[in-house]
Design a protein around this nucleic acid. Structure first.
Length: 288
DNA sequence: AACAACTCCAACCGCTATTCG
DNA sequence: CCGAATAGCGGTTGGAGTTGT
């Protein structure tokens, strides 16, 4: 294992070791499930009560920066970039203050963005933020994603998804939803075309959503490549394809056996989201 | 193909501020 | 008022992924 994972467990003698390091899908689900039922607060006791072998601080960070509804993933837009510069000039390294002006963005994300994009390459970032975002790590890293909570699982009173369809034109969207009898969650994922990073991010969302269906938990394995998901999809007799990602089964609604993942246009994509009355956890990136 | 260099960002740490008994 | 517990903030680290050689 790695240096980081080498210190993933700690604790005093006689006490159960507290996990550190990257969160697993199982842990995410436990945390989301617990908070959706009991709410936030008192993180240390929450961690214990939820049965998570994590300290409260870690739970809080995970929730606030990643799992909390409304957290926005995807690239920083040009407008956000400008806002960050302006706010940083006025406020300095007050990341949490800056974050309050950028809905859905976390202080951690803004801090990372500042350090890696602006501070390091001020001119390039200022001149063409989006170009940079798409030119280095992966082509077209801009991601548009949404995960909608279905009726039975939604303790949140599901406000309709807010989104900007104009950002999505021309991109590939793929949608999936659980079988009706398993409608604990439904979800929809959209990715920009051929983006490796985008796909990986989307898969993460899919996996979380898929696992939230709550069937046959299993052990984690390597994430499937987007291509693998597409190529392995095949409809069953009932028109649904059972897939397994990270050991969790989920179902794709297929319009036909040859469809693989169902590709739809932006309007249809958002129809899927809206028609399920869920809460959009991750909203479209408008930089496309 | 293999390796090095680079970038991104999740998660950690230490510290301060706030709350509560 | 005081001390402990909890929450929040900003800085840093290091693994993973991508690109360059």
């Amino acid at each position: 294992m790695t240096a980081r994972s080498g210190r993933t467990m700690c604790g005093r003698a006689g006490e159960p070791a507290v996990r550190k390091g990257p969160w697993t899908l199982e842990e995410d689900l436990i945390l989301v499930s617990y908070i959706s039922q009991h709410g936030e607060g008192s993180w240390d006791s929450l961690a214990r009560a939820a049965g998570l072998n994590r300290n409260g601080k870690s739970c809080r960070l995970r929730w606030l920066n990643y799992l909390r509804p409304g957290v926005r993933r995807g690239s920083i837009t040009a407008a956000e970039d400008a806002a960050i510069r302006e706010l940083h000039a006025a406020l300095g390294n007050k990341w949490s203050k800056i974050a309050t002006h950028l809905p859905g963005r976390t202080d951690n994300e803004i801090k990372n963005y500042w350090r890696t994009r602006i501070q390091k390459r001020p001119v390039a970032a200022a001149n063409n933020t989006q170009q940079q975002q798409q030119s280095h790590r992966a082509p077209a890293s801009t991601t548009t994603m949404a995960m909608a909570a279905g009726e039975s699982a939604s303790s949140s009173s599901a406000s309709p998804a807010s989104h900007d369809d104009s950002s999505a034109v021309g991109d590939l969207f793929w949608c999936a939803k659980p079988k009706p009898e398993r409608q604990a969650f439904c979800y929809a994922v959209a990715v920009s075309d051929d983006g490796a990073s985008a796909a990986s991010q989307s898969q993460k969302t899919m996996m979380t959503a898929a696992a939230a269906v709550g069937v046959d938990s299993g052990s984690a394995s390597s994430p499937m490549a987007r291509q693998d998901i597409i190529s392995s999809a095949a409809a069953g007799d009932d028109g649904y394809s059972k897939q397994t990602i990270y050991g969790y089964p989920y179902y794709l609604e297929l319009t036909s056996a040859s469809d693989g993942v169902r590709m739809v246009d932006a309007e249809s994509f958002w129809n899927v989201v809206d028609n399920f009355g869920g809460t959009t956890l991750l909203v479209p990136d408008t930089t496309l």
